[in-house]
């Protein structure tokens, strides 16, 4: 799992691990766009460069076993990684691939990861990650989910 530093082209190894109670002091709405404290009852993972504590991206999700699906609730990168002046690339991709990996662990061939972005950004997820639209919901399943994992995690 790596992210790319845009100015230098250097790739950095990253870890994606569950958010700890002590992290809530630093994951502010100002830097991470959403009120992450509201997500405490769900699973939240953070992405950091290996051997650094600085959180560069966050994802919260809900497992829905009856549908063999994991629904991504919130996904974000830190403010300095947003837009054309962003410092690192591939943060969101790594986070989505991590959720995809958990979906495979849980549901194997039935695995599905879903998202429900606003209409104007849905196309981005369809083009970049091969999500399929069903109404307002986007989903990625076998075989695309495996390709996504290979792209970011293998």
């Amino acid at each position: 799992m790596t992210i790319n530093e845009i100015t230098t082209g250097k790739s950095h190894e990253v870890t994606i691990i569950p958010v700890e109670a002590s992290d809530y002091k630093t994951i502010t709405k100002k830097r991470y766009f959403f009120d992450w404290k509201q997500e405490k009852e769900f699973e939240i993972y953070k992405l950091c460069i290996l051997s650094s504590n600085d959180i560069l991206g966050l994802v919260s999700f809900e497992k829905i076993p009856s549908e063999w699906r994991i629904h991504i609730r919130l996904l974000t990168v830190s403010i300095e990684n947003k837009g054309k002046n962003k410092k690192f690339d591939n943060i969101a991709g790594n986070l989505i691939a991590h959720v995809a990996k958990i979906a495979i662990i849980e549901y194997a061939e039935l695995a599905c990861v879903s998202l429900r972005p606003k209409t104007e950004i849905a196309q981005h997820y369809i083009k970049k990650y091969n999500f399929i639209a069903t109404g307002m919901t986007l989903s990625i399943e076998i075989p695309e989910i495996i390709n996504l994992i290979h792209q970011y995690h293998d």
Partner: peptide, 11 residues
């Protein structure tokens, strides 16, 4: 939109 779309999703 594409440049900014990865700042996050509230779904």
């Amino acid at each position: 939109t594409h440049l900014d779309s990865e700042y996050g999703v509230d779904s």
